[in-house]
Amino acid sequence: MNLRSAALLLLSLSCGFAAAPGFARDLDQDEALRLRREGIIMPFEQLMQHVGKAYPGSTLLEAELEEEDGVLVYEVEILTTSGVVRELELDARDGRILKDEEDD
């Protein structure tokens, strides 16, 4: 995935909720690019390599950068090669998969 594609995905972010326990705040494209430039979060392309290792050949369907209880998280929806849609949450700082479940 190239930078332009990642930027377009980030454009799909919607307005978020106020930061409060149990709520997530969506970050907009400008905020995401600033965090990346400052080295606070991983480049999206690099982060997606973690997904590719867990689900080789999968297709990215949707991605959002959120702040959940003070933690920057990419919420990613993928389609696996077996046709299953999975929702993953990845730590935006280091790419660790925090949540991995089949999407309903």
Results as ranks from 00 to 15, higher is better:
residue 4 R to I: 08
residue 5 S to V: 08
residue 5 S to P: 05
residue 5 S to F: 08
residue 6 A to L: 06
residue 6 A to C: 07
residue 6 A to N: 01
residue 7 A to T: 01
residue 10 L to A: 07
residue 10 L to V: 06
residue 11 L to P: 07
residue 15 C to W: 13
residue 18 A to Y: 04
residue 18 A to R: 08
residue 19 A to D: 11
residue 20 A to P: 01
residue 20 A to Y: 03
residue 21 P to E: 07
residue 22 G to I: 01
residue 25 R to E: 09
residue 25 R to D: 06
residue 26 D to I: 02
residue 27 L to N: 12
residue 27 L to H: 11
residue 28 D to Q: 04
residue 29 Q to N: 09
residue 32 A to R: 01
residue 34 R to Y: 02
residue 34 R to L: 04
residue 35 L to W: 02
residue 37 R to P: 00
residue 39 G to T: 03
residue 39 G to P: 07
residue 41 I to N: 01
residue 42 M to V: 03
residue 44 F to A: 14
residue 47 L to G: 11
residue 49 Q to C: 11
residue 51 V to S: 14
residue 53 K to V: 07
residue 54 A to P: 02
residue 56 P to H: 06
residue 57 G to K: 12
residue 59 T to S: 15
residue 60 L to W: 13
residue 62 E to S: 09
residue 66 E to G: 00
residue 66 E to K: 10
residue 67 E to W: 00
residue 68 E to S: 05
residue 70 G to Q: 01
residue 70 G to L: 02
residue 71 V to Y: 10
residue 71 V to D: 14
residue 74 Y to N: 15
residue 74 Y to Q: 14
residue 75 E to C: 10
residue 75 E to R: 13
residue 77 E to D: 14
residue 79 L to K: 07
residue 79 L to C: 02
residue 80 T to Q: 08
residue 80 T to D: 01
residue 81 T to L: 04
residue 83 G to V: 03
residue 83 G to A: 00
residue 87 E to S: 15
residue 88 L to S: 10
residue 89 E to Q: 14
residue 90 L to K: 13
residue 91 D to I: 04
residue 91 D to G: 05
residue 92 A to E: 08
residue 94 D to F: 02
residue 94 D to R: 08
residue 95 G to M: 03
residue 96 R to A: 05
residue 97 I to L: 00
residue 97 I to F: 04
residue 98 L to E: 09
residue 99 K to N: 00
residue 99 K to V: 02
residue 99 K to M: 05
residue 99 K to E: 03
residue 101 E to Y: 09
residue 104 D to Y: 08
